[in-house]
Simulated scan of single mutants.
Amino acid sequence: MTFLRFILLSALFLPAAVSATTIDVKFNQAAHSVKAEINLSPAVSLDFSIGFGNAVGLTPQNFTINAELISLTDPRIVNRLPDSLLTSLPSAFPVLISVEPDPARGFAFSGTADIELYTKTLHYTEGTPLRLFHAHGNESFQDITTMTGAGSYRVRGSGGQFSDFVVLVDLRSNLTVINEKVTQLQSFTSSVQQQLSYDAELQLTTLVQDIADAVAQSQLVQASTAVNELIRVLELDDGVLYPDVWRSSDDVINVRGRLLSISRTLRYSLRIH
């Protein structure tokens, strides 16, 4: 028996590799928050947390967090990237995180869900292209980043709904990202304005148009001022003019939460431009 054949035959009888995946999820109902300590391999681990202004039914029976290592060419990700050439999974951190509230149970939250991901697997450097992206259902992934920082890599974002989260390397120009986020803001505003009162619709469309006009004219300081004003209005509203509830049955639109999420990540992109 040749040495090579011996190696090949021996490999058939090697024990299967033991999975290193562990996910320890802790719920803090008093603080309306949940944190997951996730170990996917000896080389890949992370902390993932979500905080809510207010949440109902935040229990292990109603709300699960899953994570997995995936292929860099996984079609679940690649087919939903904003740009298949300029956005990609980092080879050291090909992680898909899925937040899955049970649609048959009573989980709900109001306002935004504030998300933080921390990992020692990646390392922060000034000007890093690493960003936090989110996709709801089978929709395309969208940048929701509101902060990036050291330790070794920490990123924050916010959202008004759930499903999948990934960290991506985003090599698009920042101006391209800004324009895309403005388009998202305009598109979402257009889709929900009929649900609003006349006063709320007028206020929202005026503020969003101010942002779009400033960006179109490359007046980014003015755009930042307009975005801050929109965020201020939405934060003060507290669900009075703009509906702000999301529930696991996914039958209502969290208007205020979604608007805040898009506005905050747009503010981040304007700040780093």
Rank of each mutant, 00 (worst) to 15 (best):
T176F: 12
A135Y: 06
A135P: 08
V177N: 13
R271Y: 11
L207K: 13
I77V: 15
G127M: 14
E126A: 09
K120G: 11
P101S: 09
I70C: 07
D74A: 12
V252H: 06
H32S: 14
V99R: 00
Q184L: 11
I50A: 00
Q195W: 00
I115R: 01
D238I: 05
I115L: 15
S173Y: 10
L204W: 03
I144G: 02
T183H: 13
V56E: 11
L220Q: 13
A216G: 10
S152N: 13
R267H: 11
L81V: 04
D170R: 01
F3Q: 14
A200F: 02
E201S: 15
H273W: 10
H134C: 06
D164L: 07
E116H: 04
L81F: 07
Y118I: 09
N254A: 03
H273M: 13
T176M: 12
E126L: 12
A113P: 00
I50C: 01
S269D: 15
G159H: 02
D244N: 15
A212L: 07
Q161L: 04
D199A: 13
L85Y: 08
A214K: 09
I262Q: 13
I253F: 01
R156H: 04
V245D: 04
V252A: 14
A55E: 01
I231L: 00
D24I: 02
P129C: 07
D164M: 01
P101T: 10
D83I: 06
K35M: 10
S88Q: 11
G137T: 08
G57W: 01
Q61I: 05
L207H: 11
G257M: 04
I23T: 07
A223T: 02
I77C: 12
V78D: 10
Q219K: 14
I144D: 00
G151V: 06
G151R: 05
S163Y: 09
T2A: 13
S173N: 11
F109Y: 09
N174T: 10
V252D: 07
D237Y: 12
T145K: 09
D251W: 02
V44I: 15
V155D: 07
A31N: 10
D47M: 12
L270K: 11
L117S: 03
I144Y: 01
L12Q: 13
P15E: 11
A104T: 10
